[in-house]
């Protein structure tokens, strides 16, 4: 199977089925996230986007099928190797998921303390830099409970970037952010891709972000429980299936003209 994988693939899903026990959420998912892609997982609410994300990032095994990192079968690999792969990925969880008993700087520093031989001062500088990168300079010694929800999200991103990962997963990054912060986050995502060559996988509904940042995508459908389209969203808008076009244009109209 693995020889079918392209050389520039960062993450590949082959015929993946996502299920909770016997309840199948999505099946027959096959797609490739190329290195340097900004890949969007889209679809209506409850269609299994976040569940797919959990499978890709290695938190829950797929009911069927395989996930490849490069050419390595993730779920077929021994635990040690899986951990090594997971160290090269970063995750920004939906609500930040910061460790509440640690300050923001300590949150970013923890993975660095575990996996690098840098001195405390160097780690502290890196943590301050990552926090500054997401616009949280000067908040190093705050606890997650002392800052707002949007700031917690951004701190979650700073932590996801701690180990300079190859692949970063975002679960609904712009939900709960004001338009300016959301746009800034998009800009940051593009910047990270361009400068560090990161591969970015995003679960989002936010059309503004989809069209600003994405160059690849997969569209999950809740009714047929499988993917009905994939590829560059700009292309999908022109020649995709009706449901996808509706998804991509309905919201656009709403963005311009308010709820009506």
């Amino acid at each position: 199977m693995s020889d079918a994988i392209a050389d520039n693939a960062a993450v590949t899903a082959q015929n993946v089925t996502v299920a909770y026990g016997s309840r199948v959420v999505q099946s027959g998912l096959s797609f490739t996230v190329r290195k340097g892609d900004i890949f969007i997982i889209m679809g209506g609410s409850g269609c299994g986007k976040s569940s797919l994300l959990r499978v890709l990032m290695g938190l829950t095994p797929p009911a069927q099928g395989a996930v490849y990192y490069g050419k390595e079968n993730f779920w077929g690999a021994p635990v040690k190797e899986r951990e090594a792969i997971m160290r090269r990925t970063g995750v920004m969880f939906q609500s930040g998921a910061l460790w509440t008993s640690r300050t923001l700087a300590e949150n970013v520093a923890l993975p660095l303390e575990y996996y690098t031989s840098l001195s405390p001062r160097e780690i502290r500088d890196i943590a301050a830099f990552k926090l500054a990168l997401v616009g949280l300079a000067g908040f190093e010694d705050f606890y997650p409970s002392e800052i707002s929800g949007g700031m917690r999200k951004r701190a979650g991103l700073a932590r996801a970037l701690a180990l300079d990962p190859d692949v970063v997963y975002f679960d609904e990054p712009s939900a709960g952010l004001d338009p300016v912060s959301a746009a800034r986050l998009d800009e940051l995502i593009l910047q990270l891709r361009d400068t560090l060559g990161m591969t970015v996988v995003v679960v989002t509904h936010e059309l503004a972000s989809i069209f600003t940042i994405a160059n690849n995508s997969v569209f999950l459908d809740a009714k047929t429980k499988t993917m009905i389209a994939g590829g560059d969203p700009h292309e999908l808008l022109k020649s995709g299936p009706d449901d996808v076009v509706e998804f991509l244009t309905r919201g656009k109209g709403r963005d311009r003209g308010g709820i009506a």
Partner: peptide
């Protein structure tokens, strides 16, 4: 080098919050 300067600019764009009395 390319890439480093824009990252630094982003990080320095937001002035640090005045922490007040520690």
């Amino acid at each position: 080098p390319d890439g480093m300067a824009p990252m630094l600019d982003m990080a320095l764009a937001v002035p640090p919050r005045d922490q007040g009395v520690k």
